[in-house]
């Protein structure tokens, strides 16, 4: 299933836009999404992966909830119709 993903902040200049289409399989997880992005834009690895896990420096929001606060964390399965957004962990203001 092609997944439509919004991207924010410093991810935008890397992916070259406000959103990306990712070719993910049915049943793909947050972790798969991160791996898919890193495969396509290897420079994202420093931000997105830490010690082999999804880094705490990045948020994958599934319907407005950061996956790290969802019960299955990085193993959360992505479903069609959900709003997915990826952002570096940032604050200020």
């Amino acid at each position: 299933m092609p997944l439509h993903v919004k991207v924010y902040a410093t991810l935008r200049p890397v992916v070259g836009g406000r959103s990306v289409e990712l070719p993910l399989e049915e049943g793909a997880t947050v972790r798969d999404l991160v791996d898919c992005m890193v495969a396509r834009w290897p420079e994202l690895e420093v931000m997105m992966i830490e010690d082999g896990e999804v880094s705490r420096r990045v948020h994958v929001f599934v319907d407005g909830r950061s996956a790290r606060h969802l019960p299955d964390g990085a193993e959360t399965v992505l479903l069609e119709g959900q709003e997915i957004a990826v952002s570096p962990a940032v604050a200020g203001g």
Binding site: K6, Y8, A9, T10, H59, F61, G64, R65, S66, E83, A85, S87, P88, V90, A91, G92, G93
Partner: peptide, 18 residues
């Protein structure tokens, strides 16, 4: 960094989403 590049307004899209 996001604060340096976009200023404090870097978080609008995020707070909107959550």
């Amino acid at each position: 960094g996001g604060l340096s590049v976009y200023g404090t307004n870097v978080i609008t899209n995020i707070t909107n989403r959550i």
